[in-house]
Design a binder for these strands. Structure first.
Lengths: 104, 104
DNA sequence: GACAAAGTTTCCAAAATTTGAAACTATAAG
DNA sequence: CTTATAGTTTCAAATTTTGGAAACTTTGTC
């Protein structure tokens, strides 16, 4: 594995890592519909806002969401439209796989 | 977050977790071109075959690859075509994000 | 049967992630 | 200025994931 290949794989893996948590998927689905602030997302998910904030900063770091400050609130919004298709594809794949394992 | 929503998010996250490792991304890219056996993939990635085997079984468990035994060899092949598009989209997003951070 | 090659599984240590509480910052309102 | 609200950061503990060596299984060959 040459160095350039390695870097590319690390970049891609890093992006998928940001998607590899149920709460972060949930947040992205909410943001698909409209922007939300941290406290609203935290309340909806039923987790402390410190946890919500950390999950959102991971998504932001991966470039999947963006934020904007309004007074004391920070609104998060989806930036990468293809993420939605990814999630749909993922669900399709997982469901198909489950079907196969249970014997078609 | 209702129970059904939770399950769906967990399923999706589980799938992305399988993609969240550089070696597994590397394997998928090799398999994009043609099927390979464990020892070949391990040699290409420069890791022990026990590690390669474990990564491949994670991919298989997520339904992203399938395997077939031929003598002592086990050939792995890609099953989910949309994974390729996902990875491309991911790379695009990450690159765009990096550009933004470095100031357009 | 003995041996070699390919894979998988097991075991355990090391590394990374996740969690919640508490401390801290910033803004708005009284 | 004081208080309340929204968010972020820090900390330590708990959990999960990873990595490598060694043991084990299976198949093919001599």
């Amino acid at each position: 594995m040459i160095e350039e290949e390695k870097r590319r794989c690390e970049m891609r893996a890093h992006m998928f890592k940001a998607l590899a948590h149920p709460v972060r998927i949930y947040f992205l689905e909410k943001l698909k519909v409209s922007p939300w602030c941290v406290c609203e997302l935290a309340a909806e998910a039923g987790i402390p806002k410190s946890a919500a904030s950390k999950h959102l900063s991971q998504l932001k770091e991966a470039g999947l969401v963006d934020d904007e400050k309004n007074g004391t609130r920070v609104e998060y919004r989806l930036t990468a439209p293809c993420v939605l298709e990814m999630a749909s594809c993922a669900e399709g794949t997982v469901l198909e796989n489950r079907r196969k394992r249970l014997g078609i």
